[in-house]
């Protein structure tokens, strides 16, 4: 794959990620829930896709760039929201990448997605605990965990069906991708 093509693909993925990230921030439905911080994780779809199509390092790059740029779009750059979002992105990106590389198909994309959602919550709480200097915030984790399960499942399913019906113009070099495809 030529360098230019890869750059364009990465840019597109980042752009879609930002769009989903910002769109999700505008969704009113979740604000009704008494759990601030719980969200769908739509942008996670892009992270997973990058992971499948381009690989671990690219996925991490896309997720970090997305978090950075989306914060600029939303106007939260260098605020608490940004630090939390960035930590979540880093945590979930790392965990999903490692799982994808080393779990050898034990987890499906849905499982990886759920792990990513959980990692997102845990790393966010870690940073939040550091920011407010109180570990007590971790009592909040069970609520988030119960919420991470359906949302992670949902985003995992989206990726699964996306892969089943379309390669989105990517020629996947990664054998695991085709493996995942056939498994699904």
């Amino acid at each position: 794959m030529s360098k230019t093509k890869k750059m364009v693909q990465l840019s597109l993925l980042v752009a879609v990620g930002i769009a989903l990230h910002v769109f999700e921030a505008m969704l009113p439905a979740l604000n009704v829930l008494p759990i601030p911080g719980a969200k769908l994780g739509l942008a996670n779809i892009v992270t997973l896709l990058t992971l499948v199509f381009l690989g671990y390092r690219e996925a991490l790059g896309v997720v970090l760039l997305r978090s950075l740029l989306a914060s600029l779009v939303a106007g939260t750059f260098l605020t608490t929201t940004f630090y939390l979002s960035f930590a979540g992105a880093l945590g979930s990106g790392l965990v999903m990448g490692l799982l994808y590389l080393f779990s050898r198909g034990r987890f499906s994309l849905v499982g990886i997605s759920i792990c990513g959602a959980v990692a997102h919550n845990v790393s966010q709480l870690l940073v939040a605990a550091l920011l407010i200097q109180q570990a007590g915030i971790f009592m909040y984790l069970p609520y988030l965990l119960l919420f991470a399960l359906p949302t992670g499942y949902f985003t995992g399913l989206v990726v699964r069906y996306l892969l089943r019906y379309s390669s989105l113009g990517f020629n996947t070099v990664d054998k695991r991708a085709s493996y995942n495809k056939s498994m699904n």
């Binding site: 779990s103 198909g105 034990r106 987890f107 499906s108 849905v110 499982g111 759920i114 792990c115 959980v118 009592m139 984790l141 069970p142 609520y143 965990l145 119960l146 991470a148 399960l149 499942y153």
Partner: peptide, 22 residues
């Protein structure tokens, strides 16, 4: 659909959450 490990993972998360509440 879900692999065996996926299911174990899901159950583990629910258990951890419940343990956290308790």
């Amino acid at each position: 659909m879900l692999t065996r490990h996926d299911k174990i993972l899901a159950i583990a998360i629910i258990l951890v959450a419940i343990l956290g509440f308790v």
